[in-house]
């Protein structure tokens, strides 16, 4: 593990019965950078995310995380601890907001652990002690800041389930950021967004990297996003890493184009177009 790396995945293998979803995969993510994970459908990208965030226990391999707070072996931690202690946040491929709660409430839930401590594990909060009130106000301010960043301040009090699709995607990112993560894992954040929304997403992610120093791990099919903002790209096919490098290197790599052609023609064309 390099001194500049925040995440190092080593020899990760994940089997589901007979299926080998991820096979002996190794890659690293550099601190303060945007690292992309791309590959055709079913390549095993989401499975890698689920291993990193503790939703799956890997069959074998190690996942090391290191930042200013300490060093962890993520494959040994519980899913909620990975977020709480190791400060890894994630979004989901099929959005998982709390639809019956408002946008603001969604962001408040994300600050659960901070607020829980401030409320003296509920006992002090029950009697409304001033220190808890101050903590709650700070939490609302943080939520307000992120709502503003994603352009949803107007809709803070609307139910998350009532928001348009693109807004829900951005709200999920804001919710992840409210946990104040060191590493942010985004699973296809541009899926279902139009060109204008994708461009706005690029800006948001670049801003997160620049202003908050959050390292980002990104799964994405939309090449206009991947090629534009990634610092480093890893390409996965059938659970195996077939290439990695800068966007320019990946764009010109015939192996990558072949993998996409074999899997899905449209996406290969998207890769070609990304070249121009």
């Amino acid at each position: 593990m390099n001194i500049n790396d925040i995440l190092s995945v080593e020899n990760l293998t994940m089997r589901f019965g007979g299926i080998v979803a991820v096979n002996d995969l190794s890659f690293t993510a550099e601190r303060g950078k945007i690292t992309a994970l791309i590959g055709p459908n079913g390549a095993g990208k989401t499975t890698v995310f689920n291993c990193i965030t503790g939703f799956y226990k890997p069959t074998s391999g190690t996942i090391k995380l290191r930042h200013s707070d300490g060093e962890w072996r993520l494959e040994r931690l519980n899913d909620f601890r990975i977020s709480k202690i190791a400060r890894v946040a994630r979004t989901f491929q099929n959005i998982r907001l709390f639809p019956g709660m408002t946008a603001l409430e969604n962001l408040m839930v994300a600050q659960h652990n901070t607020l829980m401590r401030a409320s003296g594990f509920t006992f002090l909060g029950l009697f409304g002690v001033p220190s808890y009130r101050a903590a709650e106000k700070a939490a609302i301010d943080l939520a307000r800041y992120w709502l503003d960043q994603i352009g949803l301040l107007e809709r803070a009090d609307d139910a998350a389930g009532n928001l348009p699709y693109g807004d829900q995607r951005r709200l999920e990112i804001a919710r992840a950021m409210c946990t104040e993560p060191a590493l942010l894992c985004l699973d296809e954040p541009a899926a279902g967004l139009n060109a204008r929304e994708s461009a706005a997403l690029n800006e948001l992610l670049l801003k997160i990297r620049a202003e908050h120093g959050t390292s980002i791990l990104l799964i994405e099919h939309d090449m206009s996003v991947v090629m534009e903002i990634s610092d480093h790209i890893n390409v996965l096919d059938y659970g195996v890493k077939i290439a990695d490098g800068t966007p320019r290197q990946i764009r010109d790599n015939p192996k990558v184009i072949a993998a996409y052609l074999g899997a899905d023609e449209e996406e290969a064309i998207a890769v070609m177009e990304g070249e121009t």
Binding site: F55, F80, R90, F92, G100, E105, M108, V109, H112, N113
Partner: peptide, 18 residues
Amino acid sequence: RAWEALREDEVACRALGI
């Protein structure tokens, strides 16, 4: 809020460190 979030989506709760 965590109770209600649990009712809404348990997986998302765990992803948020609850």
